[in-house]
Nucleic acid binder design. Structure first.
Length: 730
DNA sequence: TATCAGAGAAAGATATGGCC
DNA sequence: GGCCATATCTTTCTCTGATA
């Protein structure tokens, strides 16, 4: 990501979500039965009953999910994760985000693709410094006759150049072909492999030189290139012996230093896989987008953020950034129906704002002033209430303090994050919000995706995924938000190595996927991952249902043997590599794992069952004895104390926080240092509960009641008055 | 000694498969 | 088909062992 971007509508064209009125979506079917687990209800299992979903009307047994293949329905977009909005929610009520129109940014316009997928340069996955002579998959070999082999390392062109035109791609291809030795056939063996590897290593170092903008990445690439070189030398030395497989250069990952300023290892404008810097190409991304659009209908980012729903959690597609962030946090680790129930209760309990850009959103300042116990009870339907409640309180406290600090900085004309992109009016608005006790993160509209994500992940409970969702849906900055489905398809499509985790996929996709496709691909991947029978979880090739299932439009592009996404057939990968004919698929389907001996309760209690039932191959030991970690030990002690005293743990923080010096390294490890910062926020929550912050609350509420307003005054006058008010508290 | 990767925990819901 | 036990999934945070 380079330069500033449009904060909104940069990728969306005019138009709204298309909805076919007569088609009822599965999502809609459960909307009205948002299960609200009554408080104090024991978990069904505790009573020896099967877990049942509970609604306001009482327990309702959930229909067993069917794995019957169903033709996906085109259109009718209810966006996944509750993200996005139904068409009826877009309209007059929608909040216009024109407040950010004055932010001048750079756009990256996309030109329609005129090149078919098979005509575009495809990175050759076989840039492998391996001493093994791996047989070539015949089906892939057929495909490869149409593909142009490209080594991205030697090209020296930038991402923008890569995307800019087909002509550039073609030039790239010829350059790459000229710079590479001919691709070895399967007969070329080790010598060719080594020669090819040497070339790749040289180019690896060239690439490192090109990364002048990011010295740390450059160093890392150089280091890895040398490492690969050493490995290749080892391979040369072991000719004649059984060679060790060496990691493909193309899959080598740049290590990024993690630290307080980058705790997740975001690569920020680079890819962790430099050899894949042009995978996928713009045309490949376009093609996948086109195929999925044909199947599921077009998805476009609404031009206006919809008014926040009071009974839907959503996933960030609301005007207020703070609202978006907290709704996304609530909707994590649970079903949308449960998150919706929690949001509804929040709105009922704490009220909603009636004015300003956050109009219609929950009154988060009231939540901040509320007790933790109350908040926990309110959001209980969403699950993980203690955890989420603690995070929400901590975030709100942080936001409150930061807003005050930003306002003070504006008054003193000191720099603040994103402040360089704000005009005087926006700064004055920020100051006004502090005075009016209106909690807001709307200043993040002035940040780039990188800056915003960096800011978001500072908050407890907010990880890269949550941050990326808010950036994409609320800030409306193109961002490659990666959820499980997006990650799965990126692996299956070969866009990222099989071993990539979701963060790697985010870092890579953020760099390689064209901005104008990020929103659409995110939605389409999720939709497809949920609807396509062959791409869903727990469906396997070779079964009757599989054969009767509708064809997947990405079939020719996917390799579903990559990764292990709940398909349970990972162990057969090698076999498939060796033999790709249909009999293998059938054999694979028929080769079921031997049924696991069912563990009876009695046996489980004796703890001796493992010895008797481990006969099956690859059988996992169910519930192996777990080591007791230090943390568990502490918790156990606390629980034992609790049992002895009969105290209600509900009123205490889940895990006792040892008193620590904020900002100091309290442990030997740097990770401990990170923890200190997080626990500082939790500590505030614990203190609020323990010391009864209500006294302060009353004071603050009193201050909030004093209705300071700006009326027809200049920015300078406003600032002057604000300064007085902030300093005097009046 | 500092850093990193990966495992485990958290608290739920849902999926799966054996037994009756 | 109902009951039941167990496995798996979600995302973030924390901790530990391995590595540079």
């Amino acid at each position: 990501m380079s330069g500033r971007r449009v904060t909104r509508a940069s990728t969306a064209t005019a138009g709204q979500l298309v909805r076919e009125p007569d088609v009822q979506q599965p999502d809609e079917a459960v909307e009205d039965s948002a299960p609200v687990k009554p408080q104090h209800q024991a978990h069904p299992r505790q009573k020896g009953k099967r877990a049942a979903t509970t609604t306001a009307q009482g327990p309702v047994r959930k229909k067993k999910a069917t794995s019957k293949p169903v033709a996906p329905v085109k259109g009718g977009w209810i966006l996944p994760h509750g993200m996005g909005i139904a068409v009826e929610n877009i309209g007059d009520k929608a909040a216009d985000l024109t407040t950010n129109d004055n932010i001048n940014v750079e756009t990256e316009t996309a030109k329609p693709s005129t090149v078919g997928l098979l005509d575009v340069p495809v990175i050759n996955d076989d840039i492998v410094a391996t001493a093994n002579d791996i047989p070539v998959d015949s089906s892939k070999a057929k495909q490869s006759t149409k593909k142009t082999v490209l080594n991205p390392i030697s090209t020296g062109i930038t991402r923008r150049q890569t995307r800019s035109s087909t002509a550039a791609s073609k030039e790239l291809t010829s350059t790459a072909q000229a710079s590479l030795p001919p691709k070895p056939s399967s007969k070329d063996g080790l010598a060719a492999s080594i020669e090819r590897s040497d070339t790749a290593i040289t180019e690896h170092e060239e690439l490192a030189e090109q990364l002048v903008e990011t010295p740390s990445l450059r160093r890392a690439v150089t280091r890895q290139g040398r490492k690969a070189h050493r490995t290749t030398e080892d391979a040369k030395a072991t000719v004649g012996e059984t060679p060790k497989p060496v990691v493909a250069l193309i899959d080598q990952k740049v290590k990024v230093k993690r630290g307080l300023s980058n705790k997740y290892g975001l690569t920020r404008g680079s890819t962790p896989y430099p050899h894949r810097h042009a995978i996928p190409t713009k045309d490949q991304s376009e093609e996948v987008h086109r195929l999925l659009t044909e199947m599921h209908g077009e998805v476009k980012q609404p031009t206006k953020a919809p008014a926040p729903s009071l009974d839907k959690a959503g996933c960030g597609e609301v005007p207020s950034v703070l609202d978006a962030l907290l709704r996304t946090l609530i909707s994590g680790n649970t079903l949308m129906a449960n998150a919706d129930a929690a949001v509804k209760r929040l709105a009922e309990t704490y009220g909603i704002l009636t004015e300003g850009v956050g109009a219609g959103s929950i009154n988060w300042n009231a939540v901040r002033l509320s007790s933790l116990e109350k908040l926990i009870n309110v959001i209980r339907p969403a699950g993980c209430p203690k955890l989420k409640g603690g995070h929400i309180k901590a975030i709100l406290d942080m936001v409150y303090e930061e807003q005050k600090a930003r306002a003070q900085a504006h008054l003193e004309n000191k720099p603040v994050p994103g402040g360089q992109n704000e005009d005087e009016g926006q700064k004055a608005l920020e100051i006004e919000k502090v005075i009016e006790h209106y909690l807001s993160l709307d200043h993040m509209h002035a940040m780039t995706a990188d800056e915003a994500i960096t800011e978001f992940v500072r908050y407890p409970g907010i990880g890269v995924k949550t941050a990326a969702c808010v950036v994409l849906f609320c800030l409306r900055i193109p961002c490659f938000a990666v959820d499980t489905h997006v990650h799965k398809f990126c692996v299956w499509l070969g866009w990222v190595p099989e071993k990539a985790n979701e963060l790697d996929t985010f870092n890579h996709g953020e760099f390689t996927v064209p901005d104008h496709l990020k929103y659409g691909l995110h939605q389409l991947f999720i939709r497809h991952g949920q609807q396509c029978f062959k791409c869903r979880k727990n469906t396997k090739p070779g079964t009757k249902a599989w054969e009767n299932a509708p064809e997947c439009p990405l079939e020719h592009l996917l390799d579903r043997s990559k990764g292990n996404f709940g398909r349970g057939d990972k162990e057969d990968d090698e076999e498939e590599m060796d033999d790709d004919n249909e009999s293998v698929v059938a054999k694979k389907a028929s080769k079921k794992k031997p049924a696991k001996p069912q563990r009876t309760k009695k046996k489980a209690d004796t703890g001796t069952e493992d010895d008797e039932t481990d006969a099956g191959p690859e059988k996992k030991t169910p519930n192996p004895p777990k080591r007791v970690t230090k943390r568990q030990g502490i918790k156990k002690e606390v629980n034992e104390e609790h049992d002895a005293s009969g105290e209600d743990l509900e009123t205490k923080p889940a895990v006792p926080v040892a008193p620590k010096q904020p900002g100091k390294m309290n442990g030997k490890r740097a990770t401990a240092g990170k923890a200190v910062l997080k626990k500082t926020a939790s500590k505030k929550v614990a203190e609020a509960v323990a010391t009864g912050r209500e006294v302060t609350v009353a004071d603050e509420q009193d201050a909030a009641d004093k209705n300071y307003k700006f009326v027809n005054s200049t920015v300078q006058e406003q600032k002057a008055r604000s300064k007085i008010k902030l300093e005097t508290g009046r």
